[in-house]
């Protein structure tokens, strides 16, 4: 019995020490007077996001702030722990790019209890969470879907059969982009979704799905994909079946790879979401909030941009610029 009690006291004191030292660290962090921004990012191994991270790092340097960026490895619960840790460390503002938009609430709550301003970037949480956060920086997912489909509709003269290739099922972008696509189709009575299937955002799966669709013999006028990788997959399959010339292909993201396909005329439409714009704006907003300044609007929109063969060169240059910055 004695031993058990002693153990309990031991545990308690360990916990107390942990808390105290946590506070101590926070104080240390502020010693040099530098502002500290915490950034809870969903996953480091993502190409598009890596440009956003670079922009954030660069932005922080420009603002003379220290950036503490952590990787949740696509695990929501891990991200929550990381945010809690940032709170304990006493950072001046936290930027969150959620792993899962439906799981942001506890993270925001944790930060708000410590009166730390929160900026959510890139992935838009639901309205009740948005109310609590200090700012949202990003693009409206659904808009990329509508923008993409509007261009496709224009190119098809408002009529035709459309097949939609969706990303990983249940993913926020998959749901919204697909909805954006369908909203536009509803406005055109002569347009119809003939097929919808998932290729999990992957090129290889895109090829396979397209091959099977070709075999079905269905008449399709346009393949509209949730991202560029799947669109490229569809292009590959269509090309080897000799059907690329008759069918429109559209993607989203505007990755450098995809731009090459736009240049060659294989990819007709893609939508550019600006990682650098989002990254920079997120940091600027966070620093402002940390300094206690007021924002004009808590929703900071970075608009999508439509890419077609006509304007593709501009974006090729832009990527080149981003890459040079990186080096």
């Amino acid at each position: 019995m004695k031993a058990r009690k002693a153990f309990a006291w031991f545990m308690i004191s360990v916990l107390m020490l942990g808390l105290l030292s946590g506070c101590g660290n926070a104080a240390d962090g502020k010693d040099d007077g530098k502002m500290v921004i915490g950034a809870a990012m969903p996953v480091f191994d993502d190409k598009w996001l890596s440009y956003m991270y670079d922009a954030m790092k660069k932005g922080a340097k420009g603002q003379k702030a220290e950036l503490k960026m952590v990787d949740a490895k696509n695990d929501s619960s891990k991200q929550l722990e990381q945010v809690e840790k940032l709170v304990i460390q006493g950072v001046d503002a936290i930027v969150i790019c959620p792993v899962d938009t439906s799981a942001v609430k506890p993270m925001v709550d944790a930060a708000k209890q410590a009166d730390i301003p929160v900026v959510v970037v890139n992935r838009q949480p639901s309205a009740d969470v948005l109310e609590k956060v200090d700012a949202y920086v990003g693009s409206e997912s659904i808009k990329s879907g509508t923008m993409q489909m509007e261009k496709v509709a224009e190119l098809l003269d408002g009529k035709g059969h459309v097949a939609i290739m969706t990303g990983e099922l249940g993913h926020e972008a998959q749901v919204k982009r697909t909805k954006g696509n369908k909203d536009v189709i509803k406005k055109h009575p002569d347009m119809k979704v003939v097929r919808q299937g998932t290729a999990e955002y992957q090129r290889a799966e895109g090829i396979q799905l397209m091959e099977n669709w070709i075999q079905s013999g269905d008449n399709m006028d346009a393949i509209v994909a949730n991202n560029d990788e799947m669109a490229i997959g569809a292009i590959k399959a269509l090309k080897s079946a000799g059907k690329l010339d008759d069918i429109l292909v559209a993607g989203i993201d505007g990755t450098p790879d995809a731009l090459e396909y736009v240049q060659s005329g294989a990819l007709d439409v893609t939508v550019f979401q600006d990682p650098v714009g989002q990254g920079e704006k997120a940091i600027v907003t966070a620093v402002k909030l940390a300094k206690g300044e007021k924002l004009e609007d808590k929703m900071v929109w970075i608009p999508y941009e439509l890419i077609t063969k006509e304007n593709v060169e501009k974006y090729v240059e832009r990527w080149k610029g981003y890459d040079e910055n990186k080096g």
């Binding site: 969706t166 099922l169 003939v194 097929r195 919808q196 299937g197 998932t198 396979q208 799905l209 099977n212 669709w213 075999q215 079905s216 269905d218």
Partner: peptide, 13 residues
Amino acid sequence: LNNGLDLMNVSSY
């Protein structure tokens, strides 16, 4: 299975 279900246009779910 993959091919047949795709051909039949069975929903992804």
